[in-house]
Simulated scan of single mutants.
Amino acid sequence: MSSTPDGHWVKSSYSANGGNNCVEWAPSVALATGTVPVRDSKAVGPHLAVSSAAWQVFVNGVGREG
């Protein structure tokens, strides 16, 4: 975990009706660095940073499940 990156955080599209149990990511940081910062929408401090490749595998896996 590291400090919060500069950039706009985007909530998961599964966060319907303003739900609080969501994952957020910062796409502008991901595009600039190739590292995707991910955090819990309730914990706006520290975040997890994963490679773009790992994030894509995760998103593809979730898409198949949901």
Score class of each variant (00 low, 15 high):
Ser3Trp: 01
Ser3Lys: 14
Thr4Ala: 13
Pro5Met: 04
Gly7Pro: 08
Gly7Ile: 01
Gly7Ser: 10
His8Ser: 12
Trp9Cys: 07
Lys11Glu: 07
Ser12Ala: 12
Ser13Asp: 06
Tyr14His: 14
Tyr14Thr: 12
Ser15Ala: 14
Ser15Ile: 00
Ala16His: 11
Ala16Glu: 03
Asn17Ser: 09
Gly18Met: 05
Gly18Thr: 06
Gly18Pro: 07
Gly19Ser: 15
Gly19Tyr: 00
Cys22Phe: 04
Cys22Val: 02
Cys22Leu: 03
Cys22Asp: 06
Val23His: 10
Glu24Pro: 09
Glu24Met: 05
Glu24Asp: 06
Glu24Lys: 07
Glu24His: 11
Trp25Leu: 09
Trp25Ile: 13
Trp25Lys: 11
Ala26Trp: 00
Ala26Asp: 08
Pro27His: 05
Val29Pro: 02
Ala30Cys: 05
Ala30Asn: 08
Ala32Thr: 03
Thr33Val: 02
Gly34Lys: 09
Gly34Pro: 06
Val36His: 10
Val36Asn: 10
Pro37Val: 01
Val38Gly: 10
Arg39Val: 00
Arg39Thr: 03
Ser41Thr: 07
Ser41Asp: 09
Ser41Cys: 06
Ala43Asn: 13
Val44Lys: 15
Val44Arg: 15
Val44His: 13
Val44Ala: 13
Gly45Asn: 10
Pro46Lys: 15
His47Asp: 04
Leu48Cys: 11
Leu48Val: 10
Leu48Ala: 13
Ala49Leu: 04
Ala49His: 08
Val50Thr: 08
Ser51Ala: 03
Ser52Val: 02
Ser52Gln: 12
Ala53Trp: 00
Ala54His: 10
Ala54Pro: 03
Ala54Asp: 14
Ala54Ser: 14
Trp55Gly: 07
Trp55Cys: 12
Trp55Asn: 10
Gln56Pro: 03
Gln56Tyr: 00
Gln56Ala: 13
Gln56Met: 00
Val57Lys: 15
Val57His: 14
Phe58Tyr: 13
Phe58Val: 08
Val59Gly: 08
Asn60Gly: 09
Asn60Tyr: 04
Asn60Glu: 13
Asn60Thr: 10
Arg64Glu: 09
Arg64Val: 06
Glu65Leu: 14
Glu65Lys: 15
Glu65Pro: 01
Gly66His: 14
